[in-house]
Amino acid sequence: MSIETASLTKHYVETKAIDNVSVSIGDDVQVLALIGPSGGGKSTFLRLIGGLESPTFGEVTVNGITLPVDDSALREWRKKNGFLFQSFNLFPHLTAEENVILPLAEVHQSSQEDAKNRAQEVLSRFGLAKHLGKQPGQLSGGQQQRVALARAIAHKPQWLLLDEPTSALDPEMKAEVLDLIEELQKSGQKIILSTHEMGFARRASDHVIFLSDGQKLEEGNAEELFENPKTAEVKLFLEKVMKW
């Protein structure tokens, strides 16, 4: 599946979050990493591709079909993907199991029984079999993010969109979640992630886009971009973040 953006632009009141970004993600790309400084537009770009927001100008094309601007039509595209957010965003009034069951039953029209079986399957796969009946407030950050990941993949999404999935976690929990994402990557899941984890981006992704001030500064093969950045800004950024 290919994704292309043409002159993609997103303006908020006084901010150009994404400014005229055109990229072409070919069918051969399995993991795309969005990197760059904070506030550079990674999250907005991810949300535009995932159909969570509509562009001010420009368009997103998936397999040659342009995504609609109308929100209810865009919902069909969102349903096909899975999202994971930095702050987990689980529903606090539901148990871990219910958090996974709800979208399966209400959005993807699975029967309650099928949804329950699938929820138990993915949650067990992520080491959460003992925590099915717990609400998010009773789980650690790492466990919550694993539940959120289970919810995002339970319906077998075309693309898994991860928005800085480990930024709110301590190092141990971060490793737990990154291990799971790597496992998903190895199982063939297509992933787009925005991240500050340069080591992970370098190891797991096969294509990288560097965004700064809402603009694409560089794009290319992960190994190549990390080894030989072409622009001074990307070089400086990578030197800084890879130093420690």
Binding site: R78, F83, F85, N89, L90, P103, V107
Partner: peptide, 12 residues
């Protein structure tokens, strides 16, 4: 964040 999450999973 709850609205965003609901939107992301495809809720109306």
């Amino acid at each position: 964040s709850q609205w965003l999450s609901a939107k992301a999973i495809g809720f109306t």
